[in-house]
Nucleic acid binder design. Structure first.
Length: 492
RNA sequence: GCCCCCAUCGUCUAGUCUGGCCCAGGACGCCAGCCUUUCAAGCUGGAAAUCAAGGGUUCGAAUCCCUUUGGGGGCACCA
């Protein structure tokens, strides 16, 4: 095991199961994973399901599905277990309660019976007086009797952490350097809610310690709650982990990436035909770079070269154009067989209307190299290959007849092509090219005229992969049928 | 309002710690050309940043210091 600061690296991805995994969260997961793999550490997944109101049942499945899709394997967490479990915070309630009791016992926390109404009123008042919003500490002096009355009425008090006073709290952030806060600016925050669940602050701090997390790498939005966490570690008598606050991913308007900016869920990108390889590479470059020129880094290269020192401080706009370009690069780097498999899997996930339900894999494998340089996403595969699978092409005479040609000359060319195909020996790209070039010369047609005609006749489209390669893959039978069909279309 | 963070081409970034090799490099996108039977891909070239602004320090500053401005994040019994 690689050792940093004499401790084996342990990092965690701690999502809250409130919906589909968001690309911002996933980028955080990626950096944690990269850091763990780079230093032979452990990557832990912990589900922070402490908010019963926002909890979405299927969310955990989506989160894990996203990680699996990207092939970000976790060493401990849901499904795989581990020695620091359970990894669902809802199953760790006693731990939080015990810690809260300890804090209360030592005078570092107290019960609070203030109603939501009073809290709301308090904030309103503070806003009016232009004072900092925050709890005023009223229940610090709550008597045992008052508490008992409150409880006897069937209420459950919350527990608040008694924030330290008159101190400067500082953190030496791995990416931001030294950051300081005056402790008095932070109020006495809730650590146990009235439903018995802990708030993020308590659960997160406790679990990071209990799970021996060495580096907390999270988004910058958490920076301002860090003094609370440091104070909690202090009151609990625990050594805080190292913090690294990662730059955020922004929408085009530079605000936090959110739904109104378009697709924000990782799985949506799978649906849009992006490869996991491109997502990883692209997300890694959102806030991190290797040097002044390297753009394409596969997971192996990333693991080898990732470092927190090279994480930038400023937020990054999610630039889908670059992702699309990169996806094209990765698509082209696939072996034809692999590409065919990806396309098939994608079609299974999102069946396109224009493609038959089951396609012959052998055929698709031969088609794959023809469309490979033409794909930006897997979505494009359907329209690019549609004509390979169609049975009746439905030729449009107007598309068949090329500039400078008429119905008669077009028919002559097609009929000559048909007999040529019948007579040919090998039906290969080279043979086709040689034979058709010879025929073209004999018929005194330009390349553009003759080959465009043939293209439309065999594919029913003005746009296709290279003609003779396409014809070879289509095969003699299909080519004959289609040219025959084109001749028929001219008759009507 | 208060606290904190950030600031290099439209975007992602290199360079900032350890001033000079930077009148700022790469990539995406954009434009043009080449290749070409179509569309792509590929190749070549181009436009694009007074290094947020102002003031210092210095022989010399994107890089060090100060001020200002702009942007973002946070201020819940949400995470």
């Amino acid at each position: 095991m690689n050792i940093i600061d004499n401790k084996p690296v342990r990092v965690r991805y701690a999502p809250s199961p409130t919906g589909l995994p968001h690309v911002g969260n996933v980028r955080t997961a990626l950096f944690n994973w990269l850091f763990a793999r780079r230093f032979n550490g452990a990557f832990v997944v912990r589900i922070e399901d402490t908010d019963q109101n926002r909890l979405v049942r299927e969310a955990v499945d989506g989160i894990l599905e996203g990680l699996r899709w990207l092939n970000l394997d976790w060493d401990e967490g849901p499904e795989v277990g581990g020695t620091y479990g359970p990894y669902m915070q809802s199953e760790r309630l006693e731990i939080y309660h015990e810690a809260a009791q300890g804090l209360i016992g030592r005078g570092c926390a107290y019960y609070c019976i203030c109603s939501p109404e009073r809290l709301k009123e308090l904030r309103k008042q503070q806003a009016k007086e232009k004072k900092n919003p925050g709890y005023d500490g009223k229940c610090q002096n709550l008597s045992a009797r008052e508490l008992q009355v409150y409880r006897d009425a069937g209420n459950v008090p919350v527990v608040r952490f008694k924030m330290v006073r008159d101190e400067t709290i500082s953190v030496d952030d791995i990416v931001r350097g030294n950051v300081e806060w005056k402790s008095n600016l932070t109020d006495d925050f809730v650590i146990i809610k009235s439903d018995g669940f802990p708030t993020y602050h308590l659960a997160n701090v406790l679990d990071d310690h209990l799970m021996e997390i060495t580096h907390v790498l999270r988004a910058e939005e958490w920076l301002s709650s860090t003094p609370r966490h440091i104070a909690l570690y202090g009151a609990l008598g625990l050594e805080p982990p190292q913090f690294g606050h990662l730059p955020m991913i922004l929408g085009p308007d530079r605000s936090k990436l959110s739904k109104r900016h378009g697709s924000t869920s990782l799985l949506e990108y799978r649906g849009m035909g992006y490869l996991p390889e491109s997502m990883i590479n692209f997300m890694a470059l959102l806030g991190w770079s290797l040097d002044d020129r390297t753009e394409i880094l596969d997971r192996g290269a990333l693991v080898e070269s990732f470092s927190l020192e090279r994480v930038v401080k400023s937020g990054a706009i999610f630039n889908i154009d670059k992702l699309e370009w990169m996806n094209g690069i990765y698509i082209r780097s696939l072996s034809p067989d692999d590409l065919a498999a990806r396309i098939r899997d994608y079609w299974q996930l999102a069946p396109p209307a224009e493609i038959p339900d089951s396609v012959d894999m052998e055929y698709l494998r031969r088609i794959a190299p023809l469309i490979q340089p033409r794909l930006k996403t897997l979505v494009d595969a359907a329209e690019r290959t549609e004509f390979f699978f169609k049975v009746g092409l439905g030729h449009v005479p107007k598309d068949l007849i090329q500039k400078g040609m008429d119905v008669a000359s077009t028919r002559r060319a097609l009929e000559a092509s048909l007999s040529l195909i019948n007579e040919m020996d090998a039906f290969s790209t080279d043979a086709l090219e040689a034979a058709f070039e010879e025929l073209r010369l004999r018929m005194e047609l330009s390349r553009r005229q003759f080959f465009s005609l043939l293209r439309v006749a065999t594919t029913a489209s003005r746009v296709s992969p290279p003609l003779f390669e396409t014809m070879e893959v289509l095969g003699r039978g299909r080519c004959k049928d289609r040219i025959g069909g084109a001749i028929g279309a001219l008759r009507d």
